[in-house]
Structure formats: structure tokens, C-alpha cells
Design a protein around this nucleic acid. Structure first.
Length: 271
DNA sequence: CCATATACCTGGCAGC
DNA sequence: TGCTGCCAGGTATATG
């Protein structure tokens, strides 16, 4: 589900409300992708200072230590004063004096991991290899263009790998490549500097636009207040195989790269 | 080092 | 109704 826009929308929807909250209790459900790595009860009495984001991870800064939350493919958070009984897919509950933060994740590819700090070995293992943030100034077009030159793989897979730039998942990779007029199969190393600049701009534009639209709610995503996003309504290619391109009316094509679906317009996007 | 395949897990849907 | 096969927003790990 969640790529950078969905994670950021989630963060924005509960960060102000949880800031300063005291942790009263923690309840864990079925195992997630990785173990919490601490006794849940040891978090009682700590305070949630703020919520940051790095790539597709949320970082809850506690008065001591941090919680890294990843939503995997099907995870979503809710935060509120009410405490509905935990359903079969609710696997992590953080009770605070500001309300309950709950992770709902049917497929359990998500995770909540405790680390003493960002320099903790566990945190470094998860965050250490991430590329630059696409919506920050550190996402430099020149560096991006040079980075692409060094990769022989198809550009779609280079974007998904998250080593050059983080946060671009399966939806927004296809959408950004459409905006840039580049086919997903094009070898990254063969992308000229002007086209790399265009892709750089397209990535920023599509991610920023998606945050603005509240993310994409294809199946089950909603923010921590339970509100759906509506970026999917303006997707140009994602999940539109066989439908007419919004720009030229040619049928959108689907192909599989690295076991993931890619979508593109055969006329608007050049090799 | 690189590129590709596999694994984790559940649910929804189309087709029979 | 129920079965089967395929598909799904991610990514660490194994394999060649």
C-alpha cells in the first residue's frame, strides 16, 4: 500500500496530536516482519516527542529511544481517543494519554522496531542504505543523472531499489516515468542528462501531488484519521492496462519487471 | 560486485 | 457455494 506519499500523509494526520503524549501501555498481536526487539512493557512511562519520516519509515522519537514503523504492503495506522476492541489484523497498540495509536496490517509485512537511537545497529541496518529524500533539496538533479548513468538495470527497477532516491514505489514509479516520457524498460545508464532532469522533476511532482491528494487508496489505505486519499483517480497509467492513455488515447500496456507490474503508454513513453 | 528470484502473509477477485 | 489460481502499495535475503 504505502509509498512515500501514503506514509507522509499518515504522519501528517497524527503527528501533531500524538506529540507530547505519555505511553500508558503497549499491546502486541501476531508477529510482524521483524520483532520489536524490546519488552513492550518497558516503553511504559516514556513520552512520544515527535514523528518524523525517512523514506517509507515513520520514526517516533521517544523521550528515550525511537520506534521505527514500516507499513509494508497492507499496513495502516489509526490514532484516536476511542479504543475499539482489537480486530484480527490489529497487531500493535500504543496506548497514550492522548489516544491510541494502532497498526492494522492484514499481510503483516509491516513492522514496529525499537532502537535506542538512530545510530543503533538495528536502526542503521534498516535505514543505513536509503537514498536521498525526493522532496528535499538534497535530491539534486545532477547527482541523480550521474547515479542513473552508473546503473545498468531498467530504470523502473532502479527507482524501486531506493538507493538513488527513496519513497518511490510501484505506483509512483510508473506514474513518474509516464510524466517523464520514459519507458520503464529503458536501461538507467542510457538515459540522457535532459531526460534524467525531466525524470527528477517528474518524481518530485508526482510525489508532492500525491501527498496533496491524501495519497492513493486503491484497496485499503487511509490515514490515521480514517480518511481516504484520491490520487488514484488521476493516475495516468497505474492499473490502467487496456484503457486509453489520457494524453493520446493509445491503450496503456502492462508488463512484469522483477515480479512487479509496470504500466506505460507505448506512444507517450520512449525507450 | 551485479542482477534476478524467493520468501514472508492474507484477502479479494475472476473463472469454472 | 466452493474451489483454484492469480493478483496486490515492500524489501531483506538467497542464489546464480
Amino acid at each position: 500500500m504505502p509509498e512515500l506519499p501514503e506514509v507522509e500523509v499518515t504522519r501528517l494526520s497524527f503527528a501533531p496530536a500524538i506529540a507530547g503524549a505519555n505511553i500508558l501501555n503497549v499491546q502486541v498481536g501476531k508477529p510482524l516482519r521483524w520483532p520489536l526487539s524490546c519488552n513492550p512493557q518497558s516503553l511504559k512511562g516514556r513520552k512520544v516527542l515527535q514523528v518524523r519520516r525517512r523514506g517509507k519509515y515513520l520514526l517516533l522519537d521517544l523521550s528515550h529511544g525511537i520506534l521505527l514503523i514500516h507499513l509494508g504492503m497492507s499496513g495502516s495506522l489509526t490514532f484516536g481517543k476511542q479504543t475499539p476492541v482489537a480486530g484480527k489484523h490489529d497487531h500493535f497498540d500504543l496506548f497514550t494519554d492522548h489516544g491510541l495509536l494502532r497498526l492494522h496490517d492484514p499481510r503483516r509485512f509491516g513492522a514496529v522496531v525499537y532502537a535506542d537511537s538512530e545510530s543503533d545497529a538495528l536502526a542503521v541496518k534498516l535505514l543505513g542504505r536509503l537514498g536521498v529524500e525526493p522532496l528535499e533539496d538534497s535530491f539534486d538533479p545532477q547527482v541523480f543523472a550521474l547515479g542513473l548513468k552508473k546503473k545498468h538495470a531498467p530504470v523502473k527497477q532502479v527507482l524501486l531499489a531506493g538507493e538513488l532516491v527513496v519513497g518511490v514505489g510501484n505506483i509512483y514509479a510508473s506514474e513518474a516515468l509516464f510524466l517523464a516520457g520514459i519507458r520503464p524498460t529503458t536501461r538507467a545508464s542510457r538515459i540522457s542528462k535532459p531526460r534524467a532532469f525531466k525524470l527528477h522533476q517528474a518524481i518530485r511532482q508526482v510525489l508532492a501531488s500525491a501527498v496533496e491528494k491524501g495519497g492513493s487508496s486503491l484497496r485499503d489505505f487511509s490515514n490515521a484519521q480514517g480518511q481516504n486519499g484520491y490520487f488514484q483517480l488521476q493516475a495516468n497509467v497505474y492499473d490502467r492496462a487496456g484503457l486509453p492513455c489520457r494524453a493520446c488515447a493509445a491503450p496503456i500496456k502492462r508488463l512484469v519487471q522483477g515480479q512487479r507490474s509496470s504500466f506505460y503508454c507505448p506512444l507517450c513513453q520512449k525507450p
